[in-house]
């Protein structure tokens, strides 16, 4: 196995508020090979987005990375620890080697700048290119993400685009500098279902063609099932289970992962008499996390031992990790 492109080790990003520290990301670890798609799955508030922002170094005040390491490898000059870099060096990597697609395409494009400008500036911020070169690149990448008539559309403003088209623009912005890693933060959630399917299948194609690695953040296991090679499941700021997609879906070992899988409506099972499985209770408030395993209040396997926080144990083969005292024995859900 090659050394991974990105390694996140024990990442901790806390928000230091007057009401105490909110541990939005608390001990997250995973790694990602070149060209691989990793699904980062969890409920709202589980720290997925903040993990993405931490990698890019764009966490807003009062949030701060307080522990851990984010290592990005280069084929040539070894590795850099992203969270030890200064703002200036980070800025050179952002949008260049690491890009991100944000969740809501209605909000993430600047309403008063032309689409072309928003693409071209991304090129010019990182390359010694002429304007016309940058424009050519922009037209090219717009065509690749399926925007018809790119030369004319360059002159348009975001409000002249539909939601799906705007998200294509956002994807084009992420792709334009051919980054090594793209973090996609639920990029299809805000779109209607038919557009979702289109964009997903195009991203799948792009991921295969470009050799870019993706971190696909979502709350929907079904979305990443067909997309990702590996899945990391997050709960209350922690990775609770990590594994190869098929293995994890067929043999979930964490009770939370099993709950997530059981709540996906299967094909042909939407008959009125079949109730979908629910995970009882709600995600706990991050301000007031219980001691020990955060999931134990919703878990049917919880015991006395769960008052102590379990560690993330990696299997001997290194391809599976789990944070649970009472794991399921790899049975089908």
């Amino acid at each position: 196995m090659n050394r991974p492109l990105l390694e996140v080790r024990n990442l901790q990003t806390h928000f230091l508020t007057s009401m105490g520290a909110i541990r939005a990301v608390d001990d997250v670890s995973f790694s990602l090979q070149r060209g691989e798609v990793l699904g980062l799955v969890g409920e709202s508030g589980s720290g997925k987005t903040i993990t993405g922002y931490s990698i890019l170094g764009v966490v807003d005040e009062p949030g701060r990375i307080v522990g851990g390491e984010i290592v990005l490898r280069d084929t040539e000059d070894g590795e850099v620890v992203l969270n030890h870099l200064g703002e200036k060096q980070l800025r050179r990597l952002r949008g260049n080697r690491i890009a991100m697609i944000m969740q809501d395409p209605m909000m993430s494009l600047n309403p008063s700048l032309r689409i072309g400008t928003q693409l071209v500036e991304t090129v010019l911020a990182h390359r010694q290119a002429s304007r016309s070169e940058a424009e050519r690149r922009a037209v090219d990448v717009m065509r690749r993400v399926g925007i018809p008539d790119p030369e004319q559309r360059m002159q348009a403003f975001p409000h002249e685009f539909s939601g799906g088209m705007r998200q294509r623009v956002a994807i084009a912005i992420a792709l334009i500098n051919e980054p090594d890693l793209i973090i996609a933060d639920e990029p299809t959630t805000a779109l209607d279902v038919t557009t979702q399917v289109q964009i997903l299948s195009e991203v799948q194609k792009l991921a295969r063609e470009t050799g870019t690695a993706w971190i696909w953040i979502t709350h929907d296991l079904a979305v990443v099932a067909g997309l990702a090679q590996h899945i990391a499941v997050m709960y209350a700021g922690k990775v609770v289970e990590f594994g190869a997609t098929e293995d994890l879906l067929d043999h979930p070992r964490h009770p939370y992962t099993r709950g997530l899988i059981a709540s996906i409506p299967g094909e042909g099972e939407l008959a009125a008499d079949r109730r979908l499985h629910q995970i009882p209770g709600n995600t706990p408030s991050l301000l007031n996390l219980p001691e020990g395993c955060a999931f134990r209040t919703r878990c049917d396997r919880a015991g006395a031992q769960c008052d102590i926080q379990p560690m993330l144990e990696t299997s001997s083969a290194g391809d599976r990790a789990l944070r649970c005292w009472h794991p399921l024995e790899g049975q089908s859900p």
Partner: peptide, 8 residues
Amino acid sequence: KLARIKGL
């Protein structure tokens, strides 16, 4: 945020 993410 996106403008920052783009590295401007």
